[in-house]
């Protein structure tokens, strides 16, 4: 038996919005410690890994490990039927070919139930090696989204260059070129606007904007995004999954990490 309840169903909606264009089908692995998902896009250029901690749920029970393969586009459709303030419960019985989704409205007298068919997916799991990254940039998620969107007007790829003075995002195309430079800054009043750069050695790497623009669909999950880079390894774009409660308290319940293979000169 598997049962997981989130008090703020909107978090699940945001997670699905963040991944369902990149991957259409994937398997959730459920264990006593939480739920996780790993999947590559169809061209195998990027990989998304979602992790939700069991203790981030208001109720979490997983008697034995389960793999719930499903069509994420369909799951997303069903989650659209839940109100943003609904409590959402996911239930799966051992050996069943479907999961149940239960939405409880805040008024406490309206309950909706949906079922979604499970699929047997031949998932390929990749081992992600422990890496210590040369450069880590923590910046406002909305700023990163804006930069990727703007530079995609200029070209298909962005070169991220990091030096002592800051980080540069630049693109070149038929019409010309463009760049956005950010230097480290911190504000006591608005920590969500901070740009934090940690660098061991200067670095410059190029990535396809098509994928980065897909990753920024996770922007509503968290005010800050972390980019981790090292020469000749995939870029990591990480968003924490933050549940905002009624009292405005923020609770980190997991993360989404996107890995993007670089473009490398022949």
């Amino acid at each position: 038996m598997f049962e997981a309840k989130l008090d703020r169903g909107i978090v699940l909606k945001k997670i699905l919005d963040a991944i369902n264009q990149l991957v259409n089908e994937a398997s959730w692995e459920c264990t006593s410690s939480g739920m996780s998902l790993q999947a590559m896009d169809t061209s195998h250029v990027s990989l998304v890994a979602v992790n939700l901690n069991g203790d981030g749920f208001s109720k979490f029970r997983c008697d034995r490990n389960m793999v719930l393969g499903m069509n994420l586009v369909n799951l997303s459709k069903i989650l659209k039927c839940a109100g943003n303030d609904d409590k959402v419960t996911i239930k799966a019985a051992d050996g069943d070919d479907k999961i149940k989704l239960i939405f409880e409205a805040p008024n406490e007298y309206e309950v909706s139930q949906y079922e979604i068919k499970l699929m047997n997916l031949d998932a390929e799991y990749l081992g992600i090696p422990e890496t210590s990254y040369n450069v880590t940039v923590k910046m406002p998620a909305a700023k990163f989204q804006r930069i990727c969107r703007d530079l995609n007007q200029i070209g298909d790829a962005v070169t991220i260059s990091c030096t002592k003075s800051g980080v540069d995002f630049s693109a070149t195309g038929d019409l010309g070129n463009g760049s956005v430079s950010l230097s480290q800054n911190s504000s006591f009043d608005k920590p969500e606007d901070n740009v934090t750069i940690s660098m061991q050695e200067p670095l410059s790497q190029t990535f396809a904007l098509k994928y980065l623009n897909q990753f920024t669909k996770a922007t509503p999950l968290c005010s800050q995004v972390t980019l981790s880079l090292s020469p000749d390894v995939p870029l990591v774009v990480e968003y924490k999954i933050i549940e905002e409660n009624e009292e405005d308290s923020k609770n980190e319940i997991g993360h989404i990490r996107y890995y993007l293979a670089p473009k490398i000169d022949d």
């Binding site: 590559m40 250029v45 990989l47 081992g127 293979a261 490398i264 000169d265 022949d266």
Partner: peptide
């Protein structure tokens, strides 16, 4: 000319 690598060039299948 830069070439797009795939993720499986870096991460091995389990």
């Amino acid at each position: 000319m830069s070439k797009q690598k795939t993720i499986t060039n870096f991460f091995k299948r389990k």
